Amino acid sequence: MRRHVLLAACACPILAATAAATVPGCGEEFEDICAFLEDPNSCYATYHRDIGARCGAQGDGDAPKGTFASREALDVCFLNEGGQVVFDPPLDLAAFPPKSLSFKRLDALAQECGSFTFSGEYSYSVTIHPCGETEEDTAADAGPLPLCADGSGAGEGIARVSGGTVTVTTPEGRDTLDVSCADGTTHHFNRIDAERKCVERTPLLPRAVLEASAGNQPPPDAGPVPPDTFAGSISFRVHYPPSAGSGAAGDVVTYFTCQIPPPAAICFNGEKDGLETDIDCGGTLCEKRCGKGQSCAQDSDCDGLSCLPDTSGFRKCTDPNAEP
Protein backbone atom coordinates (compact mmCIF):
# COMPACT_ATOMS: atom_id res chain seq x y z
CA MET A 1 0.00 0.00 0.00
CA ARG A 2 2.79 2.42 0.89
CA ARG A 3 4.39 1.89 -2.52
CA HIS A 4 1.12 2.78 -4.32
CA VAL A 5 0.76 6.00 -2.34
CA LEU A 6 4.30 7.04 -3.21
CA LEU A 7 3.73 6.32 -6.89
CA ALA A 8 0.56 8.39 -6.94
CA ALA A 9 2.30 11.32 -5.24
CA CYS A 10 5.10 11.23 -7.81
CA ALA A 11 2.73 11.11 -10.78
CA CYS A 12 1.05 14.44 -10.05
CA PRO A 13 3.99 16.75 -10.72
CA ILE A 14 4.82 14.78 -13.86
CA LEU A 15 1.31 15.28 -15.19
CA ALA A 16 1.30 18.94 -14.28
CA ALA A 17 4.65 19.52 -15.98
CA THR A 18 3.83 17.72 -19.20
CA ALA A 19 0.22 18.86 -19.62
CA ALA A 20 0.67 22.42 -18.28
CA ALA A 21 -2.88 22.16 -16.95
CA THR A 22 -4.67 21.90 -13.63
CA VAL A 23 -4.55 18.36 -12.24
CA PRO A 24 -7.15 17.84 -9.47
CA GLY A 25 -5.46 17.22 -6.18
CA CYS A 26 -2.04 18.06 -7.57
CA GLY A 27 -1.37 21.64 -6.55
CA GLU A 28 -2.48 24.79 -8.35
CA GLU A 29 -6.03 25.73 -9.09
CA PHE A 30 -6.62 28.17 -11.92
CA GLU A 31 -9.47 30.55 -12.65
CA ASP A 32 -11.37 30.38 -15.94
CA ILE A 33 -9.20 32.48 -18.26
CA CYS A 34 -11.77 32.37 -21.07
CA ALA A 35 -14.42 33.91 -18.83
CA PHE A 36 -11.93 36.61 -17.81
CA LEU A 37 -11.10 37.46 -21.44
CA GLU A 38 -14.76 37.55 -22.44
CA ASP A 39 -15.89 39.65 -19.47
CA PRO A 40 -16.32 43.33 -20.48
CA ASN A 41 -16.26 44.18 -16.77
CA SER A 42 -13.10 42.31 -15.82
CA CYS A 43 -10.70 44.34 -13.70
CA TYR A 44 -8.30 44.66 -16.67
CA ALA A 45 -11.09 45.90 -18.98
CA THR A 46 -12.33 48.30 -16.30
CA TYR A 47 -8.81 49.64 -15.81
CA HIS A 48 -8.44 50.28 -19.55
CA ARG A 49 -11.79 52.10 -19.68
CA ASP A 50 -10.57 54.35 -16.89
CA ILE A 51 -7.08 55.19 -18.21
CA GLY A 52 -7.80 55.11 -21.95
CA ALA A 53 -4.63 56.08 -23.80
CA ARG A 54 -3.28 58.35 -21.04
CA CYS A 55 0.54 58.64 -21.28
CA GLY A 56 0.45 57.15 -24.77
CA ALA A 57 -1.58 56.99 -27.97
CA GLN A 58 -4.19 54.62 -29.31
CA GLY A 59 -2.95 52.27 -32.01
CA ASP A 60 0.33 50.87 -33.21
CA GLY A 61 1.50 53.73 -35.42
CA ASP A 62 0.49 56.91 -33.59
CA ALA A 63 2.84 56.68 -30.62
CA PRO A 64 4.38 59.72 -28.96
CA LYS A 65 7.63 60.03 -30.92
CA GLY A 66 10.94 61.39 -29.76
CA THR A 67 14.69 61.00 -29.84
CA PHE A 68 17.69 60.65 -27.56
CA ALA A 69 20.34 63.38 -27.42
CA SER A 70 23.11 60.93 -28.37
CA ARG A 71 23.96 57.26 -28.44
CA GLU A 72 26.06 57.80 -25.32
CA ALA A 73 23.13 59.26 -23.32
CA LEU A 74 20.21 56.85 -23.45
CA ASP A 75 18.57 57.90 -20.21
CA VAL A 76 16.06 60.44 -21.54
CA CYS A 77 14.02 60.41 -24.74
CA PHE A 78 12.78 63.91 -25.60
CA LEU A 79 9.31 63.75 -27.14
CA ASN A 80 8.60 65.86 -30.21
CA GLU A 81 5.30 67.22 -28.88
CA GLY A 82 6.61 67.84 -25.37
CA GLY A 83 7.39 65.57 -22.45
CA GLN A 84 10.00 62.94 -21.77
CA VAL A 85 10.49 59.23 -21.34
CA VAL A 86 12.99 58.72 -18.52
CA PHE A 87 14.73 55.34 -18.33
CA ASP A 88 16.12 54.11 -15.01
CA PRO A 89 18.56 52.51 -15.42
CA PRO A 90 19.58 54.06 -18.75
CA LEU A 91 19.50 51.86 -21.84
CA ASP A 92 22.75 50.05 -22.66
CA LEU A 93 23.48 49.51 -26.35
CA ALA A 94 25.89 46.71 -25.43
CA ALA A 95 22.88 44.76 -24.12
CA PHE A 96 20.47 45.40 -27.01
CA PRO A 97 17.74 44.45 -27.37
CA PRO A 98 17.08 44.93 -23.63
CA LYS A 99 15.50 42.04 -21.74
CA SER A 100 14.03 44.34 -19.11
CA LEU A 101 13.02 47.96 -18.90
CA SER A 102 11.89 50.51 -16.33
CA PHE A 103 10.75 54.00 -17.28
CA LYS A 104 8.51 56.86 -16.29
CA ARG A 105 6.57 59.15 -18.57
CA LEU A 106 6.60 62.91 -18.01
CA ASP A 107 4.08 65.06 -19.82
CA ALA A 108 4.67 68.45 -21.46
CA LEU A 109 4.05 70.16 -18.11
CA ALA A 110 6.82 68.10 -16.45
CA GLN A 111 4.22 66.11 -14.50
CA GLU A 112 4.75 62.38 -14.10
CA CYS A 113 1.79 60.79 -15.79
CA GLY A 114 2.82 57.16 -15.31
CA SER A 115 5.55 54.59 -14.80
CA PHE A 116 6.15 51.19 -16.37
CA THR A 117 8.27 48.06 -16.03
CA PHE A 118 8.87 45.26 -18.51
CA SER A 119 10.66 41.92 -18.20
CA GLY A 120 8.74 39.84 -20.74
CA GLU A 121 5.68 39.74 -22.97
CA TYR A 122 3.58 38.48 -20.06
CA SER A 123 5.57 40.15 -17.28
CA TYR A 124 5.07 43.89 -16.98
CA SER A 125 3.42 46.60 -14.94
CA VAL A 126 1.54 49.78 -15.84
CA THR A 127 1.03 52.58 -13.32
CA ILE A 128 -1.08 55.54 -14.42
CA HIS A 129 -1.37 58.51 -12.07
CA PRO A 130 -4.75 60.17 -11.48
CA CYS A 131 -5.63 63.30 -13.42
CA GLY A 132 -8.59 65.65 -13.73
CA GLU A 133 -10.55 67.32 -16.50
CA THR A 134 -10.58 70.73 -14.81
CA GLU A 135 -8.42 72.51 -12.26
CA GLU A 136 -11.20 72.02 -9.70
CA ASP A 137 -10.94 68.22 -9.84
CA THR A 138 -9.50 66.86 -6.61
CA ALA A 139 -8.64 63.46 -5.24
CA ALA A 140 -9.57 62.43 -1.72
CA ASP A 141 -6.95 63.72 0.74
CA ALA A 142 -4.66 64.59 -2.18
CA GLY A 143 -5.71 68.07 -3.26
CA PRO A 144 -6.06 69.21 -6.89
CA LEU A 145 -5.29 66.67 -9.61
CA PRO A 146 -2.99 67.43 -12.54
CA LEU A 147 -4.87 68.05 -15.76
CA CYS A 148 -5.25 65.07 -18.07
CA ALA A 149 -4.71 67.43 -21.04
CA ASP A 150 -1.12 68.71 -20.92
CA GLY A 151 -1.17 70.91 -24.02
CA SER A 152 0.76 68.48 -26.22
CA GLY A 153 -2.31 66.70 -27.56
CA ALA A 154 -1.83 63.80 -25.18
CA GLY A 155 -4.78 63.50 -22.86
CA GLU A 156 -7.07 65.65 -24.97
CA GLY A 157 -10.64 64.46 -24.60
CA ILE A 158 -9.80 62.36 -21.53
CA ALA A 159 -12.02 63.03 -18.53
CA ARG A 160 -10.95 62.32 -14.98
CA VAL A 161 -8.70 59.28 -14.54
CA SER A 162 -8.54 57.33 -11.27
CA GLY A 163 -5.46 55.43 -12.36
CA GLY A 164 -3.59 52.85 -10.33
CA THR A 165 -1.33 49.90 -11.09
CA VAL A 166 -1.87 46.69 -13.00
CA THR A 167 0.82 44.02 -12.76
CA VAL A 168 1.00 40.99 -15.05
CA THR A 169 3.45 38.22 -14.21
CA THR A 170 4.52 34.94 -15.81
CA PRO A 171 7.47 33.20 -14.11
CA GLU A 172 10.23 32.17 -16.51
CA GLY A 173 9.66 28.74 -17.96
CA ARG A 174 6.00 28.55 -16.90
CA ASP A 175 2.63 29.15 -18.56
CA THR A 176 0.86 30.65 -15.58
CA LEU A 177 -0.48 34.18 -15.82
CA ASP A 178 -1.00 36.25 -12.68
CA VAL A 179 -2.89 39.53 -12.95
CA SER A 180 -3.00 42.03 -10.08
CA CYS A 181 -5.44 44.85 -10.75
CA ALA A 182 -5.78 48.43 -9.57
CA ASP A 183 -8.92 47.52 -7.61
CA GLY A 184 -6.90 45.17 -5.38
CA THR A 185 -8.11 41.91 -6.94
CA THR A 186 -5.69 39.20 -8.05
CA HIS A 187 -6.20 36.41 -10.57
CA HIS A 188 -4.28 33.22 -11.30
CA PHE A 189 -4.61 31.64 -14.75
CA ASN A 190 -3.12 28.93 -16.92
CA ARG A 191 -2.40 30.64 -20.24
CA ILE A 192 -2.52 27.33 -22.11
CA ASP A 193 -6.21 27.06 -21.21
CA ALA A 194 -6.93 29.97 -23.54
CA GLU A 195 -5.22 28.21 -26.44
CA ARG A 196 -7.19 25.02 -25.80
CA LYS A 197 -10.60 26.36 -24.88
CA CYS A 198 -11.03 29.78 -26.51
CA VAL A 199 -8.29 30.25 -29.07
CA GLU A 200 -10.21 33.08 -30.72
CA ARG A 201 -9.77 35.06 -27.49
CA THR A 202 -5.98 34.71 -27.26
CA PRO A 203 -5.42 38.15 -28.91
CA LEU A 204 -7.09 39.60 -25.79
CA LEU A 205 -4.50 38.17 -23.40
CA PRO A 206 -2.85 40.91 -21.33
CA ARG A 207 0.58 41.42 -22.85
CA ALA A 208 3.24 44.02 -23.57
CA VAL A 209 5.53 44.31 -26.58
CA LEU A 210 8.99 45.86 -26.52
CA GLU A 211 10.74 46.37 -29.87
CA ALA A 212 14.30 47.64 -30.04
CA SER A 213 17.10 48.03 -32.56
CA ALA A 214 20.53 49.55 -31.96
CA GLY A 215 20.72 50.76 -35.57
CA ASN A 216 23.13 49.89 -38.37
CA GLN A 217 26.67 50.97 -39.08
CA PRO A 218 26.71 53.55 -41.90
CA PRO A 219 29.31 53.46 -44.70
CA PRO A 220 32.77 54.75 -43.67
CA ASP A 221 32.39 58.04 -45.57
CA ALA A 222 28.72 58.67 -44.72
CA GLY A 223 29.61 62.08 -43.32
CA PRO A 224 29.71 63.61 -39.86
CA VAL A 225 25.93 63.21 -39.48
CA PRO A 226 24.79 59.84 -40.91
CA PRO A 227 21.26 59.68 -42.36
CA ASP A 228 18.42 58.51 -40.14
CA THR A 229 18.10 55.34 -42.20
CA PHE A 230 20.90 53.98 -39.99
CA ALA A 231 19.27 55.07 -36.72
CA GLY A 232 18.07 52.69 -34.04
CA SER A 233 14.76 52.79 -32.20
CA ILE A 234 12.87 51.49 -29.20
CA SER A 235 9.11 51.33 -28.68
CA PHE A 236 6.74 49.97 -26.05
CA ARG A 237 3.08 49.09 -26.31
CA VAL A 238 0.48 47.29 -24.20
CA HIS A 239 -2.50 45.24 -25.36
CA TYR A 240 -5.80 45.88 -23.59
CA PRO A 241 -9.36 44.54 -23.92
CA PRO A 242 -11.44 46.11 -26.67
CA SER A 243 -13.17 49.41 -26.04
CA ALA A 244 -16.37 50.40 -27.78
CA GLY A 245 -15.96 50.13 -31.53
CA SER A 246 -12.35 48.93 -31.45
CA GLY A 247 -13.08 45.41 -32.70
CA ALA A 248 -12.55 41.93 -31.35
CA ALA A 249 -8.76 42.13 -31.52
CA GLY A 250 -8.66 44.54 -28.58
CA ASP A 251 -6.94 47.86 -28.08
CA VAL A 252 -3.26 48.69 -28.36
CA VAL A 253 -1.79 51.69 -26.57
CA THR A 254 1.73 52.66 -27.62
CA TYR A 255 3.53 54.65 -24.96
CA PHE A 256 6.53 55.80 -26.97
CA THR A 257 8.63 55.29 -30.06
CA CYS A 258 12.08 56.82 -29.58
CA GLN A 259 14.80 57.15 -32.19
CA ILE A 260 18.38 56.31 -31.23
CA PRO A 261 20.90 58.39 -33.21
CA PRO A 262 22.79 56.30 -35.77
CA PRO A 263 26.36 55.18 -35.10
CA ALA A 264 29.05 57.53 -36.32
CA ALA A 265 30.72 56.60 -39.60
CA ILE A 266 34.19 55.25 -38.85
CA CYS A 267 35.81 58.08 -40.83
CA PHE A 268 34.11 60.66 -38.56
CA ASN A 269 34.05 59.01 -35.13
CA GLY A 270 37.15 60.61 -33.64
CA GLU A 271 38.93 57.27 -33.30
CA LYS A 272 41.65 55.42 -35.17
CA ASP A 273 39.89 52.29 -36.36
CA GLY A 274 39.23 50.23 -39.45
CA LEU A 275 42.01 50.65 -42.00
CA GLU A 276 42.86 54.20 -40.92
CA THR A 277 46.51 55.03 -40.37
CA ASP A 278 45.60 57.83 -37.94
CA ILE A 279 42.40 59.26 -36.47
CA ASP A 280 39.78 59.46 -39.25
CA CYS A 281 42.34 59.66 -42.05
CA GLY A 282 44.53 57.56 -44.31
CA GLY A 283 43.99 53.99 -45.42
CA THR A 284 41.69 52.83 -48.17
CA LEU A 285 38.28 53.56 -46.61
CA CYS A 286 38.47 57.22 -45.65
CA GLU A 287 38.59 59.98 -48.23
CA LYS A 288 40.39 62.31 -45.86
CA ARG A 289 44.19 62.19 -46.06
CA CYS A 290 46.41 62.68 -43.02
CA GLY A 291 48.16 65.90 -42.17
CA LYS A 292 51.66 66.72 -41.04
CA GLY A 293 52.83 64.63 -38.09
CA GLN A 294 50.07 62.03 -38.38
CA SER A 295 50.82 58.35 -38.83
CA CYS A 296 50.94 56.83 -42.29
CA ALA A 297 51.92 53.65 -44.11
CA GLN A 298 52.64 55.14 -47.52
CA ASP A 299 52.65 58.47 -49.33
CA SER A 300 49.04 58.05 -50.47
CA ASP A 301 47.91 58.23 -46.83
CA CYS A 302 49.16 61.82 -46.61
CA ASP A 303 47.65 65.05 -47.86
CA GLY A 304 50.33 66.16 -50.30
CA LEU A 305 53.12 65.05 -47.99
CA SER A 306 55.58 62.19 -47.91
CA CYS A 307 55.36 59.24 -45.54
CA LEU A 308 58.80 59.09 -43.90
CA PRO A 309 60.23 57.81 -40.61
CA ASP A 310 60.60 60.56 -38.01
CA THR A 311 63.34 60.81 -35.40
CA SER A 312 61.65 58.10 -33.34
CA GLY A 313 61.65 55.71 -36.31
CA PHE A 314 57.89 55.80 -36.88
CA ARG A 315 56.42 56.74 -40.25
CA LYS A 316 54.69 60.13 -40.26
CA CYS A 317 53.34 62.47 -42.90
CA THR A 318 56.28 64.81 -43.49
CA ASP A 319 57.23 67.69 -45.77
CA PRO A 320 60.54 66.50 -47.19
CA ASN A 321 61.44 70.04 -48.22
CA ALA A 322 60.90 71.55 -44.79
CA GLU A 323 63.91 72.85 -42.95
CA PRO A 324 64.97 70.66 -40.03
Rank of each mutant, 00 (worst) to 15 (best):
V86P: 01
R71H: 08
S70H: 11
S70K: 11
D62V: 11
G66P: 09
D62A: 15
L91Y: 09
F87P: 01
L79R: 13
A94S: 13
G82R: 08
L91Q: 07
D88T: 15
P64S: 04
K99Q: 13
V85G: 03
P97C: 10
D88S: 14
A69H: 08
R71C: 02
G82S: 05
V85I: 15
A73F: 07
D92S: 10
E81A: 13
E81D: 12
F87Q: 00
S100G: 14
V86N: 13
L74C: 04
F87Y: 10
C77Q: 01
N80K: 15
D75N: 13
K65I: 00
N80M: 11
F78Q: 10
P97D: 09
P97A: 11
E81P: 00
F78N: 12
P89N: 11
T67R: 14
D75S: 13
D92V: 05
E81W: 06
L91R: 07
L91N: 07
L79F: 07
P90Y: 00
D92H: 06
G83C: 04
S70N: 08
A73T: 13
V85S: 08
C77P: 05
A69P: 07
A63D: 04
L79P: 11
V85C: 03
L74N: 06
A94G: 10
A69Q: 12
D88K: 15
F78T: 10
A95H: 09
A94H: 08
P90L: 00
C77L: 01
D75I: 00
N80P: 01
G66S: 05
P89A: 10
F96D: 03
Q84M: 10
K65S: 09
S70I: 05
C77V: 02
D92M: 03
P90N: 01
E81L: 11
S70P: 08
F78M: 05
E72M: 11
D75L: 01
P97L: 10
N80C: 05
K65F: 06
T67L: 06
L79C: 09
A94K: 12
S70E: 07
F96P: 00
A95G: 03
G82L: 02
L79K: 10
V76M: 03
E81F: 07
C77R: 03
L93D: 08
V85F: 02
E81M: 09
P90C: 02
P90M: 00
G83P: 07
P89R: 11
E72S: 15
V85P: 04
V86D: 09
A95C: 04
A63G: 07
L74H: 05
T67D: 07
P64L: 00
A69L: 11
D62K: 15
P90G: 01
G83W: 07
P89S: 11
A94C: 02
A95T: 11
F78C: 01
G83T: 02
G83I: 02
D88Q: 14
S100P: 11
P97S: 12
P98S: 05
A95Q: 12
A73W: 03
P97M: 09
K99F: 02
L93T: 08
S70W: 10
G82V: 12
F68H: 06
P97T: 15
K65P: 00
L93I: 13
Q84T: 13
E72W: 09
G82H: 08
E72I: 14
V76A: 04
D75G: 15
L93H: 10
A73N: 12
F78I: 02
F68K: 04
D92C: 03
